[in-house]
């Protein structure tokens, strides 16, 4: 369980995180989405006690992170896979974490094997690791204390398609066993398969959040007509304003039923009519972030 309430962080005159609130429940994966500089990492650093909030609070398992004596046994954190000593071996990196948490280092080889870093890779120094290998080591590092909560900042960064697939399975299994996962990403596509809930932020503010299914449903309908001008006129008459997508389709904030009905009645030929789903959500997200950036500029 992660509870974030009105978290705000100000750097000088710049509001990096602005009144962010959300909750991650046990048994769920929460996708934390936002473009570069949105405030994802800053929010996560505040949750983990590495940065002090200007205002607001964050608790993990009901406790402020800094008040946990040995948090590694409850919360697994991966904020930056590159933040490991280049001169240490992968095995030693995990062993240090295990000893700190009061665990037997005998579990280290098995944990390395689980993330695909067995044999020679485990004995190599982190300097010689690729970004994907560092990411794998980081996941093993986060999970070595058998935590109940995982906080991961862009863990898919640098992983190959097979690795991303493997990580999704890992996180899904973790949540299905009752774990809580918060993972950030720039890309909706990267997390939508595994996430149950989505929190989207831009310019430090929460733009939308909710159940994935609900958000996907709310994203509207994608319509493409043989005669775009006729479609525009039809939507005008219906009193809805669509937004044009790159491929010539129009994203309409109305159900497929009503649009299909109206098109049939006025004889407009439709080439495509479907729930926009993630494409629409992505579109909506981009529009919202673009808008929040405009406000930022005009402020």
């Amino acid at each position: 369980m992660i509870e974030v309430e009105h978290l705000t962080k100000r750097y000088g005159r710049h509001l990096a995180v602005d009144d962010v609130s959300f909750t991650c429940e046990p048994g769920t994966v929460t996708g934390f989405l936002g473009p570069n500089g949105a405030g994802k990492s800053t929010t996560m650093r505040m949750i983990c006690g590495l940065a002090t909030p200007t205002s607001g609070t964050a608790t993990v398992s009901g406790v402020e992170y800094r008040r946990l004596g040995n948090p590694g046994r409850q919360i697994g954190v991966l904020l930056d896979a590159s933040a490991q000593h280049a001169g240490r071996t992968g095995r030693e990196t995990l062993a240090l974490a295990a000893v700190t948490m009061g665990l037997d280092t005998a579990r280290v080889p098995e944990r390395l094997r689980q993330v695909g870093l067995e044999g020679a890779a485990a004995r190599r120094r982190v300097r010689a690791y690729s970004l994907g290998m560092r990411q794998r080591l980081g996941l093993a590092y986060a999970m070595i204390g058998d935590p109940a909560v995982l906080i991961l900042d862009e863990p898919a960064n640098g992983l190959d398609p097979e690795g991303i697939h493997w990580m999704r399975g890992l996180l899904r299994g973790f949540a299905d066993r009752g774990g809580t996962v918060l993972l950030s990403s720039h890309l909706l596509r990267e997390v939508e398969v595994v996430a149950d809930r989505l929190v989207m932020i831009g310019g430090g503010r929460v733009l939308m959040q909710g159940d994935k299914a609900q958000l996907l449903g709310a994203a509207g309908t994608l319509v493409r007509a043989a005669d775009p001008v006729a479609l525009d006129a039809l939507l005008d008459r219906m009193g809805v304003t669509g937004s044009r997508c790159a491929d010539g389709g129009v994203l309409v904030p109305a159900g497929p039923q009503s649009i299909g009905q109206a098109a049939a009645e006025s004889g407009v030929v439709l080439l495509e009519l479907r729930a926009a789903g993630s494409g629409g959500l992505e579109e909506m997200f981009l529009r919202l972030t673009a808008k929040s950036e405009l406000e930022e500029v005009s402020r």
């Binding site: 590495l50 040995n70 948090p71 904020l79 930056d80 933040a83 490991q84 000593h85």
Partner: peptide
């Protein structure tokens, strides 16, 4: 080496 990130999270 930025290991302080891991050290202070643990």
């Amino acid at each position: 080496q930025r290991t302080v990130l891991g050290t202070f999270t643990l």
